[in-house]
Amino acid sequence: MVSMQAFYADLFSARENEQSSLASLVRIARASLKEILAVRSELAWDVWYAQ
C-alpha cells in the first residue's frame, strides 16, 4: 500500500494532461468543493436514529 505522503508526492508531481491514472486524480484535487460533493452516496453505516 502506498503511504499517504508518497501518494501526495506522486500526485503533485503528475501533470493533469498526462495519460496516466494519476492525471484523473489530479483533476479531482483541482476541482471545486461543489463538484467533489458528487462522490457522496448512500453507502454509509446506517444510524439508529432515536424516534
Partner: peptide, 16 residues
Amino acid sequence: APVQHLFTKVGADFPF
C-alpha cells in the same frame, strides 16, 4: 458508481 459519477463531474477519465 459514486466514484465514476465524480470522475464524470470533474471531466476526468475513470482510471485503472
